Computed example of a mutant assay.
Amino acid sequence: MKATAIANSNIALVKYWGKRNEEIILPQNSSISMTLDSLHTTTTVEFSKKLKEDSLIIDGKKVPENETEKVSKHLGLVRKLSGKELFAKVESENNFPKAAGLASSASGFAALSLAATKAFDLHLDKKELSVLARQGSGSASRSIFEGFAEWLKGSQIDGSDSYAKQIAPKDHWPELTMVIPVLTTKEKKIKSRAGMTQTVANSPLYQSWLDTIESDLDKVREGILEKRFSQLGKTAELNALKMHSTMLTTDPHIIYWEPQSITMMKEVMLMREEGIEAYFTIDGGPQIKILCLDKNAKKIENRVKEMKEVKKTYLCKAGDGAKLIDKDLF
Rank of each mutant, 00 (worst) to 15 (best):
D161I: 08
H172V: 02
E187H: 07
T199K: 08
K165D: 08
P174K: 10
T184P: 00
A194C: 06
Q166G: 07
I180T: 09
D158M: 01
K186V: 04
W209F: 15
P174C: 00
T199I: 06
Y163Q: 01
K165L: 11
L176C: 04
T177H: 06
H172L: 00
D158A: 12
T184G: 06
K191I: 13
V179R: 04
I167W: 10
Q198W: 13
H172W: 08
S208G: 11
I167R: 03
V179F: 11
Q166M: 10
K188L: 10
V182Q: 05
S192R: 10
P181Y: 00
E187S: 11
D161Y: 05
S203K: 09
M196H: 13
D171T: 12
M178E: 12
Q198A: 09
T184E: 06
K189F: 11
S203E: 03
K186Y: 02
W173F: 14
D158Y: 00
L176W: 12
K189Y: 11
R193H: 10
V200N: 00
S208L: 14
L205W: 10
K191C: 10
L183D: 03
A164R: 07
D161G: 08
A164Y: 05
D161V: 02
T185H: 12
N202H: 03
L205V: 11
D158V: 02
V182L: 01
Q198R: 14
L176V: 07
E187V: 10
D161K: 06
Q166K: 14
L176Y: 04
N202P: 00
H172M: 02
K170S: 10
D171N: 14
A164S: 14
W173L: 02
T197N: 13
S160E: 06
L176P: 03
A201Q: 13
D158S: 09
T197G: 12
E187N: 08
I190C: 07
E175F: 06
W209T: 04
Q207Y: 01
P181V: 03
D161P: 08
